[in-house]
């Protein structure tokens, strides 16, 4: 999904098997040398899923950070809590994600410090999302994108309702009761919508999924993604954000079934 560039003679690497770092020098100069822009993602995370349920919102992402087709880092957490009631699920470039974490954590610490003197409530999920959207759009407008797609999940304490929204490297924003990035948008989103609409109806005014039901849908979706997304891994976490706060599950795996594969020509033991 996070496409790496082809080398100059593009008959190679049609399957994105390796990333090719290309520092473009001399494009713009600066007192401290050329300004480095992220021209492409290197170490990447794949899909993130998000789903609203009756008491809050859940976000799921697996633990893999890939280097091209290499499953390079297999114990990376891509769910990041911000304050008591907000959580980011991040796909795309992991170094940009780490930078983002650092910036946002610093901002929230500053807010906490100010709140010590005026007791004003900290930034709501909506506030953080708005900031993130402006940041992503500003960076894309400088042709120096933050190479991520982010789901922001949260609980709004004032309105007493859950929050779920998407923003990506183009500054594109939207919100919906079910969301998915990357391959998840193709493979998991239909499953999430189907489950959501089965109870809530197409207008979303019926009852929402329970916590157990929501977790089941996410488990199923993560399994489908593991089966079909070559950049995924069978080890993922689910974050749950409710009025009580954020909780992130331990890493877990789906039960998978591969028996059918042995009968497939070209997969199992047969050579012909």
């Amino acid at each position: 999904m996070w496409k790496q560039p082809a080398p100059a003679n593009s008959s190679f690497n049609d399957y994105n098997t390796f990333p090719l770092p290309q520092t473009q020098r001399g494009q713009s100069s600066h007192a401290h040398g050329p300004v480095g822009h992220t021209q492409q993602p290197l170490v990447t995370g794949t899909s993130v899923l998000g789903l609203k349920f009756d008491k809050g919102v859940m976000i799921a992402a697996d633990n893999l950070a890939s280097y091209g087709s290499l499953a390079r880092f297999r114990d990376i957490q891509r769910l990041h809590p911000l304050g008591k009631h907000t959580l980011l699920g991040v796909a795309g470039d992991m170094s940009d994600f780490q930078w983002l974490k650092k910036e946002l954590d610093a901002l929230l610490r500053e807010e906490d410090a100010l709140a010590l003197s005026d007791s004003h409530p900290s930034l709501s999920p909506k506030n953080i999302y708005e900031l993130l959207s402006n940041l992503f759009y500003a960076r894309r407008s400088k042709m120096n994108p933050v190479w991520n797609a982010v789901l922001v999940g949260g609980w709004d304490k004032v309105k007493e309702e859950s929050f779920l929204a998407y923003v990506d490297l183009l500054g594109t924003t939207y919100t919906a009761p079910t969301l998915a990035t990357g391959f998840g948008a193709h493979l998991a989103q239909p499953l999430l919508r189907e489950a959501f609409e089965a109870k809530a109806g197409i207008n979303g005014d019926g009852p929402l999924l329970t916590q157990e039901e929501a977790e089941k849908v996410l488990d199923d979706s993560m399994k489908v993604l593991f089966y079909r997304d070559a950049r995924s891994i069978n080890k993922y976490q689910i974050a749950t954000i409710t009025a009580e706060g954020v909780s992130i599950s331990d890493s877990k795996s789906s039960d998978t079934y591969w028996k059918f594969a042995e009968g497939l020509r070209g997969y199992g033991a047969q050579t012909q």
């Binding site: 100010l114 003197s117 005026d118 004003h120 930034l123 709501s124 506030n127 900031l131």
Partner: peptide, 12 residues
């Protein structure tokens, strides 16, 4: 309002 979508706290 632009960056956070939030009315600035009065004390600040």
């Amino acid at each position: 309002r632009m960056t956070y979508g939030r009315a600035i706290p009065v004390g600040r």
